[in-house]
Simulated assay, not measured.
Amino acid sequence: MFKEHARIMNAIAASGEIAGRKKLQKIIYIAKKLSFPFQEKFEFHFYGPYSEELTLRIEELCNMGYLHEVKEKKAGYYQYRYSITETGKGFMDMHEIDMPKLEDCLLDMNEKNARFLELVSTVLYFETLEKEEVAEKIFTLKSKQRYSIEEIDEAYQYIDSLKGKAKLS
Rank of each mutant, 00 (worst) to 15 (best):
N110F: 01
A31S: 14
K23Y: 14
E69S: 05
L141G: 01
T140K: 08
F116A: 00
E4S: 12
R146K: 15
K22H: 06
S148G: 10
Y77I: 00
S121W: 00
T128R: 05
S121P: 09
F116Y: 10
K165T: 03
M99H: 09
S83Q: 01
I8Y: 00
F126Y: 15
A14C: 10
D153C: 05
K41A: 15
K3T: 12
Q39T: 13
K101P: 00
Y147K: 06
R146Y: 09
E150W: 08
A166M: 08
N63P: 02
L107I: 12
I18R: 03
Q25N: 07
L34C: 07
T122M: 00
H95I: 01
T85Q: 05
T85V: 04
E133Y: 03
P49D: 09
D108R: 10
K32N: 15
E96R: 13
I27K: 04
I152G: 07
F126L: 04
E69C: 13
D98V: 13
E72Y: 12
Y158V: 03
E150T: 08
E118T: 07
K32P: 09
E127Q: 11
M99T: 13
V123A: 05
Y47V: 12
L124G: 01
A13H: 11
K144I: 14
E69T: 07
K26A: 03
K3H: 06
Y80C: 01
I138V: 12
Y82C: 01
G65C: 07
E132R: 06
L107Q: 14
K74V: 14
V70S: 00
K74W: 13
K74L: 13
I18E: 07
G90N: 10
T87D: 11
K112I: 05
S121A: 15
A75Y: 13
Y47M: 01
G65K: 05
Y80W: 15
F2H: 14
A155V: 10
D93A: 10
G16V: 11
H68C: 11
I97S: 02
A6V: 06
R57Q: 14
H5C: 05
Y29V: 07
E132H: 06
T87A: 00
R115N: 01
I58T: 15
E111T: 13
E151Y: 10
E60C: 01
T128A: 01
F91A: 02
V70A: 02
H45D: 14
L106P: 05
K73C: 02
E118Q: 07
E86G: 03
G90S: 04
H68V: 01
E4N: 11
Q157Y: 12
I159M: 06
K101T: 02
I28D: 06
L119S: 13
I97F: 11
A135H: 02
